[in-house]
Write a protein that binds this DNA or RNA. Sequence first.
RNA 1: GGUCGGUUCGUCUAGCUGGUCCAGGACGUGAGAUUCUCAUUCUCAAAAUCAUGGGUUCGAAUCCCAUACCGACUACCA
Length: 510
Amino acid sequence: MSERKVRVRFAPSPTGALHIGGVRTALYNYLFARQNGGQMILRIEDTDSTRYVEGAERYIIDSLRWCGIEIDEGVEQGGPHAPYRQSERKAIYLKYALQLVESGNAYYAFDTPEELDTLRKEMESRGKTFSYNYAIREKLATSLHLSKQEVQERIARGDQWVIRFKMPADQTVAMEDLIRGEVEINTSTLDDKVLYKSADSLPTYHLANIVDDHLMEISHVIRGEEWLPSLPLHYLLYRAFGWSDTQPEFAHLPLLLKPSGQGKLSKRDGDKLGFPVFPLRWVAPNGEVSRGYREDGYFPEAFINMLALLGWNPGTEQEIFSMQELIDAFSIDRVGKSGARFNPDKAHWFNAQYMHAADDRRLAALYEPMVVAHGHSCSHENALRIVSQIKMRATFPDEFWGLSSFLFEAPVAYDDKAQKKYWKGDAPKVVAALREVLAMIEPFTLAEMERVCHAWIAENEIPMGLVMNAFRLAIVGEAKGFGMFEMCEVLGKEQTLARLDRALAALPKE
RNA sequence: GGUCGGUUCGUCUAGCUGGUCCAGGACGUGAGAUUCUCAUUCUCAAAAUCAUGGGUUCGAAUCCCAUACCGACUACCA
């Protein structure tokens, strides 16, 4: 068992956008696969033709790619077990369902959904819960007590049928979960789940899932906690097929909870929670648009880092992890057992960390189009200079322009508050003198400005705060911006002197 | 209702085999320091009777039981 090749799978169903809980499940699968030199498989579970949403599969693939979660085998890259879309594997499932009927582990049931519905309502109106199980199945139209001939006839004349698992009564199933440990359950509390539907010739999740995991040689199933209740069925299915010896190990991840109210986060939460629930922007078939982390300005590395720590922790105080570091540090037994609420503030913090550490060239590529969009131009050299300064003050790229627009638009007025605070005493005279010093500096570079001006300031014993704040007011028009000489270098000598002259003329002399 | 799972600062969590935990870290919050504005950075602070009640034990956040609360599941959905 321990020698077994690690093969994990992420198996979403294309019923809409993938929410962050799903992304986290995919991530944990991926980390586990990579850490163990195993394979990561993407299987599309589209066995519910009625809930299929156009574009969802594309969205899932794009999302994983943006996150940096690489797929080894799947609908796009193919692989030894292709196809990886269950709708394209239709042909293989019936055989297995029939095999179960043959071996007495399953049976045909001819009830229509409507019949079951009325039965269910009837029971409920009498205060009882309806469960399709050992107690009731003998009374319904099933192959369990119908003659072989009648079963054949019904099928032949096109009656709708379904194959249900024959859940044994009063057996204890002992299961092992990598996160929760031993879990036991009595089968009498379980019902006869539908495995195959004749209506669309498609299996249900349970059958398709077990068959495909077996066929695809999956070694570990890492999925959401909502699947824990069906784990006994899955165990029994493996047993019925005679596959228990190669049955995968299971790990059920705690759920991601809604931040305010209660309940698990769902894709229907879309855009209503005050933070994105989806990695990428999603336009639903009904036209409803939900924002995404990518469009909100999150770096994929930050998004992944944040998600990885939501439910898992390394046991150390390290919080910033690259994908490779996550791969090295991840372990399933350090995944928590309880559901986690998502914290938008912490997500911001993670993004800010990546922003501050981001490569200037990467940020400049984001910045330059913004400058152009605002009707200005900027040399690549200056973009790099600007971005290296403003990134320390930003959390998201969309703050860039607000943090630097004054470099492209000279002040037309001077902030009153800043004037009162900084344009007083010797300030006007000092700035006038500084203008002359700057005028003589050649080349007009950061290093040169610092060298000359700092010497001048020291020599004349001028308080740093006095010069710089007044200087800032003159250049920017208010008390904002980054380093003065850094800004002047971007502005260039001509613009710097022009702004000084204008300020000296517009502001009070004393 | 039934079955299963969970329960440590507002939030994410450390705490795995009981003592060094009158519970540690991070986010957020407050205060201060540094600084040419802002931001960064740094320091400090407030913040959890470890859901509650019983055990077991010399000793429990850590083991056991019960209760409460929360969640998942309970479809011819995944």
